[in-house]
Write a protein that binds this DNA or RNA. Structure first.
Ligand SMILES: [Mn+2]
Ligand SMILES: [Mn+2]
Ligand SMILES: [Zn+2]
Ligand SMILES: [Zn+2]
Lengths: 141, 141
DNA sequence: GCGATAATTAGAACTATTCCAAACTTAGGC
DNA sequence: GCCTAAGTTTGGAATAGTTCTAATTATCGC
């Protein structure tokens, strides 16, 4: 069984679990995200998907991306008011936004860090998610 | 000397330091932020400022807010793709976004926490800023 | 295969923000 | 106290990213 059909199965499983259908558009969008994990925008996903599904529309790309986010197969990532970026990395991780290159890097987090960070919350605050964003520059080469 | 004129002086100082001028619009926008620290949007700031300067324009509110952010008297805060919110709290702090009420709460951070968080960065990553966002609900009353 | 339901599509609409060019204000130099 | 240059404000147009709409097409269970 190919990697891609494993992914397709995982996707179909998650989709049907939410009463949603597996479609070629959803599969291709998801595969595009898995193939090049550079946190593309919806426009960039659109461009990549087009080579396989030339008639897909931008609206469908937005629909598919939102579906994937809701199935928790993909995370939406925002920096300031820039276009939303999409990330298929499901491990707990932070994002480093390189202001020079514009590139976004995943920073894997030690198992206990998010708990440690959440422990600063006063009584009565119940966090469902924690997001950590670094902004700065990365060394060359 | 009133609190408000102390703020006005601090503002004038920061502005002239950057070769910028103190204007009534900038002062009123800054005072509005200091007076009610509920992370208002530009539109909300506009509405509040109007009662003191009825002829101010929305473009000017955006200009003033950007100026204040550049002088580092105010932080711009974003949640997903919602409108930018403005925060005059200069202590190191995280934001807690209550999904039920839509309200944003400041979470003061212990002195060492941001360093601890930054220490997860691999060699070669140089973070100029770290941002922490919690999302969830707060207990009633 | 058929009907019900879900998904896709193109384009219009929307929201928050930025851009623009003209008018106004302010700080200095005389 | 005026003049000029520079900075600022203003209303409206433009823009970017996303969401909405209504029509068409695909899929699923029977
Ligand atoms: Mn993130
Ligand atoms: Mn923040
Ligand atoms: Zn990521
Ligand atoms: Zn704040």
């Amino acid at each position: 069984m190919s990697i891609s059909s494993q992914n397709a199965d995982a996707l179909a499983e998650r989709l049907s679990h939410s009463g949603l259908r597996a479609t070629p558009q959803r599969e291709v969008v998801y595969n595009v995200l898995l193939k090049k994990r550079d946190h593309p925008t919806a426009d960039e996903v659109f461009a990549r998907v087009k080579s396989e599904l030339p008639t897909i529309s931008l609206a469908t790309v937005y629909n598919c991306l939102e579906t994937l986010v809701q199935c928790e197969l993909v995370r939406a990532v925002n920096f300031e008011r820039g276009p939303t970026r999409y990330c298929p990395n499901l491990r707990p991780h932070a994002h480093f936004h390189d202001e020079h290159t514009g590139k976004t890097h995943d920073i894997d987090l030690p198992a206990d860090l998010l708990d440690k960070v959440s422990s600063v919350l006063p009584q009565g605050y119940d966090a469902k998610s924690v997001e950590i964003i670094f902004r700065g520059k990365t060394a060359p080469h």
